[in-house]
């Protein structure tokens, strides 16, 4: 049995004539400690998939099973990092309070604050625990969001295009941070992105979705050597081969049919 199983998952928005299927009969599994990237043409339902997996959105059909238990609401073994760091951090809480807030559920008391500080230390923000989000740069804000997920000690970390709104250099730093943390804590990661380089660089496996309604087009195994390195890994012939391959699949997919004008955003 895999850690996380997605079974024939479908989600349809609206009803009757206005019904728009976002994802359709998706099936895949994620093993313990695996890093899976989900990628696809824009509007293919990546975010819908992730929200269903996170238990935030009830699927129309199919199921998400975590450790043999069906996910009906957000399970406490999962943590989610959103793309919009500036909207997922609570502006009235300091970095420490933001990180400690989800720990209320675990009833840690004083320990919670200590754990929050450790987590902020791990992401390199040890000196900024008492800063408010708006006093931090975009990259630092996303680090706070990552620390918050980390302190929650999830077995599965879900990330929804987490680095899509930061600049290129910060993005590279954050990618390496995630790889490091994953190495240290052995957390399983499901990582949604629209960036092919990012998917190849980070993932053990890439799930490529079709255009909307999203189905699985192909699963690509990434056999790049560990630990990965922004310069060395990206210079490998195998890296280039993989990204060209994924790129081609997505191009074909995007051109497969004329885009329907009301194709909804991810």
């Amino acid at each position: 049995m895999s850690l996380l199983e997605v079974h024939e998952l479908s989600k349809v928005y609206g009803e009757g004539a206005a019904a728009t299927p976002a994802i359709s009969e998706l099936t895949f599994a994620v093993e313990e400690r695996e890093f899976v990237c989900v990628i696809g043409p824009s509007g293919c339902g990546k975010t819908t998939l992730l929200r269903c997996v996170a238990g935030l959105l009830a699927p129309t059909a199919g199921s998400v099973v975590l450790r043999g238990k069906r996910v009906a609401r957000p399970p406490d073994e999962m943590a989610l990092v959103f793309q919009e760091y500036n909207r997922s951090l609570f502006p009235w809480m300091t970095a420490r309070q933001n990180v400690a807030f989800p720990l209320r559920r675990k009833r840690l008391g004083k320990q919670g604050a200590a754990r929050a500080e450790t987590a902020l230390d791990e992401v390199g923000l040890g000196r900024f625990v008492d800063h408010y989000p708006w006093q931090l740069s975009g990259g630092m804000q996303q680090r706070v969001a990552i620390a918050r997920a980390l302190a929650y000690q999830p077995s599965v970390l879900l990330m929804d295009e987490p680095f899509a709104s930061v600049d290129a250099q910060t993005r590279a730093d954050l990618e390496d941070l995630i790889l490091q943390l994953r190495q240290r804590f052995g957390v399983t990661v499901v990582f949604v992105t629209h960036d092919i380089d990012e998917a190849v660089y980070l993932g053990d496996r890439i799930v490529v979705l079709t255009r909307a309604p999203g189905r699985i087009r192909e699963t690509v195994l990434v056999g790049l050597p560990e630990p990965r390195d922004q310069i060395e890994t990206k210079a490998l012939a195998e890296f280039t081969r993989l990204r060209t391959h994924v790129n081609r699949v997505i191009k074909q997919e995007a051109a497969r049919q004329p885009a329907s004008p009301d194709a909804q955003g991810s």
């Binding site: 957000p74 406490d76 989610l80 909207r87 807030f101």
Partner: peptide, 10 residues
């Protein structure tokens, strides 16, 4: 996003 963040952390 704020509400969903809170919800996702139970």
């Amino acid at each position: 996003t704020l509400v969903e963040t809170a919800r996702s952390y139970g």
